Amino acid sequence: MSILPSLLAVLACVCFVSCQSEEEIKRERYITEGILVYKGNCANCHQTKGQGLAALYPPIAKSDYLVNKNKVICLIRYGQQGKIRVNGKQYNRPMPAHPQLSDLEIAEVVTYIYNQWGGEKKVTDVKSVAPVLEQCRTELSNATMK
């Protein structure tokens, strides 16, 4: 039995990975981890394909709500109560907060969501997510003090 086909397959994989930029490798890593975060925390309501659940939970796929990424980042960490309008349709189910998710996990799931359904082809890096989460925390603290 020849080892040549296996060797060629390994060589092809090595060449493919080595031809990718560091940014592309990072994006793929964030997306892969983001899928796991999404399946564990979001898919139950928003469904695996992001289509939402009837009139109960809004879609993420093809959602006009994705236009404000900072708001989405805050929503993932801190949740939301009350009415929300997505693609012209009103929803009124609370979205639970996910304080157990690290800043990195939020960056990963946001990268996945925006690459899968938001038309992006880039990383939403943890370095950009952390200050947004801090601003949200400050705004929420100020709002509760009033």
Results as ranks from 00 to 15, higher is better:
residue 5 P to L: 04
residue 12 A to S: 11
residue 60 I to N: 00
residue 92 N to H: 08
residue 15 C to Y: 05
residue 69 K to R: 13
residue 20 Q to R: 14
residue 101 L to M: 10
residue 7 L to G: 08
residue 95 M to P: 06
residue 80 Q to P: 11
residue 102 S to Q: 09
residue 86 V to H: 15
residue 96 P to C: 08
residue 38 Y to Q: 03
residue 74 C to T: 02
residue 13 C to H: 07
residue 37 V to K: 00
residue 29 R to F: 11
residue 42 C to F: 14
residue 38 Y to P: 01
residue 74 C to F: 04
residue 74 C to W: 09
residue 86 V to T: 13
residue 28 E to G: 05
residue 81 Q to D: 13
residue 22 E to D: 05
residue 95 M to I: 10
residue 61 A to S: 11
residue 87 N to A: 01
residue 68 N to H: 15
residue 61 A to C: 10
residue 5 P to N: 02
residue 39 K to N: 07
residue 70 N to I: 01
residue 105 E to H: 15
residue 41 N to S: 12
residue 7 L to D: 04
residue 53 L to N: 10
residue 68 N to D: 01
residue 31 I to C: 03
residue 85 R to N: 07
residue 90 Q to G: 06
residue 58 P to G: 08
residue 100 Q to F: 08
residue 75 L to Q: 10
residue 35 I to H: 13
residue 7 L to F: 00
residue 97 A to M: 07
residue 17 V to C: 11
residue 38 Y to M: 01
residue 98 H to N: 09
residue 47 Q to F: 02
residue 61 A to K: 15
residue 18 S to N: 10
residue 85 R to T: 11
residue 56 L to S: 06
residue 61 A to P: 09
residue 81 Q to A: 11
residue 11 L to F: 15
residue 99 P to K: 06
residue 20 Q to F: 05
residue 20 Q to G: 02
residue 50 G to T: 02
residue 88 G to Q: 00
residue 71 K to W: 12
residue 16 F to A: 05
residue 53 L to G: 06
residue 21 S to D: 06
residue 55 A to N: 11
residue 72 V to T: 06
residue 77 R to T: 09
residue 89 K to T: 13
residue 36 L to G: 13
residue 67 V to C: 12
residue 14 V to F: 15
residue 69 K to C: 07
residue 101 L to W: 11
residue 21 S to V: 05
residue 42 C to H: 13
residue 46 H to S: 01
residue 77 R to D: 08
residue 99 P to T: 02
residue 72 V to D: 09
residue 94 P to K: 03
residue 25 I to E: 01
residue 41 N to T: 07
residue 35 I to S: 05
residue 55 A to I: 05
